[in-house]
Computed example of a mutant assay.
Amino acid sequence: MHAKLSPSTIFLLTLPPIFWAGNAVLGRLVAPLVSPMTLNLLRWAIAFVLLLPLAAPVLRRDSALWPSWRRFAVLGLLSIGGYNALLYLALNTSTPINVTLVGASTPVWTLLIGRIFFGIRISGKQWLGALLSISGVLLVLSRGQLDVLLQVHLVPGDLYILLASAAWAYYSWMLAHPTTEPDGIRKDWSAFLLAQIAFGLVWSGLSAGVEWSLGWGRFDVSWGLALALLFIAMGPALLAYRAYGAGVARAGPSVAGFFINLTPLFTAVLSTAFLGELPHLYHALAFVLIVGGIWVSASRR
């Protein structure tokens, strides 16, 4: 049975890949206008300002946050300061097909990290789910043609997205295993996310500072870039993180990790939509494989 995957849980875990697909498309479009570390810093600075009216008390000196500051510093490093920065860097230094291909390893990383660091046993169904899910991603990337995959060559820049996938997997397990944060913060999604963003901005600021000190920074102000920043701050940042955290709490990080592989499918659909092309049969087949992987991995005896 699939008791953990109620319709509302499926919605929560499907929403982030849709937003993250839009993030990937916009990230590639604005790459000539803003450098990756600066883009990441600006995105989360805007998200911080938007969220502040809802959860400002969590940052007060007498807040229950500060006894748990080390945990939130790690959460902010893995997700905001690490995963997102590495993703934008990968979009600047590698091809989109490579980034998506390596990013498809996230469910496998989730299973392995759960086993190594959290003692979670990996079932045969979970491995089968991972195989189905990755097969669906490969189908999208190859556009249904094997020779396209055979022409893929990994480059050193792909290491960025590999590290990003591992960081996100560990972040997911940390969400599922709260240890020191107070219930008041844990149960208030806005306070929980604002605490992560506050520490994540420190890491992002350090990365952007290094970027500019090395002469790699760029920021060309335009209305198009401003609108793109507003979207990725509201959708892929605030709404997606809120939905993903709630989904992990319901279904667990292993199942949630499989939903991430819907991102390349949605990215392909959005890309073809912007180019005026119609979806193909392989998109439908890939969707069946990815959803099949989710279904198998979430099933219980």
Rank of each mutant, 00 (worst) to 15 (best):
M1K: 13
A3I: 13
K4E: 14
S6H: 04
P7W: 05
T9V: 12
F11P: 08
F11G: 04
T14F: 06
I18R: 03
A21G: 10
L26G: 07
V30H: 03
L33H: 05
M37C: 11
L39M: 05
I46L: 06
P57Q: 01
R60Q: 09
R60N: 08
S63F: 02
A64T: 06
L65K: 03
R71L: 15
F72E: 09
F72Y: 14
V74C: 06
G76W: 03
L78T: 01
L78F: 00
I80F: 03
G82W: 01
G82F: 00
N84C: 02
P96G: 06
L101M: 09
V102Q: 13
S105E: 10
T110I: 15
I116Q: 11
F117C: 11
F118L: 12
K125D: 12
Q126H: 08
W127T: 06
L131Y: 12
I134Q: 08
S135H: 14
L141M: 10
G144T: 09
L146D: 14
V148C: 13
Q151S: 15
L154K: 09
V155H: 04
V155P: 14
P156K: 04
D158S: 05
L163T: 15
A164T: 11
Y170W: 11
Y171K: 04
M174P: 06
D183T: 15
G184V: 07
R186H: 10
R186K: 12
W189T: 07
A191E: 13
A195W: 07
F199T: 04
V202S: 00
W212Q: 00
W212I: 02
F219L: 07
V221L: 09
L227M: 09
I232R: 07
A237G: 02
A240Q: 03
Y241R: 02
G245K: 02
G245A: 08
A246M: 14
G252W: 05
P253W: 08
S254Q: 13
G257Y: 02
F258C: 10
I260M: 11
I260G: 08
A268F: 07
V269F: 14
T272M: 12
T272C: 15
A273M: 15
F274H: 15
L275A: 15
E277G: 15
L278W: 15
P279Y: 08
H280D: 15
H283R: 04
F287R: 13
G293R: 11
V296T: 05
S297P: 02
A298D: 10
S299H: 13
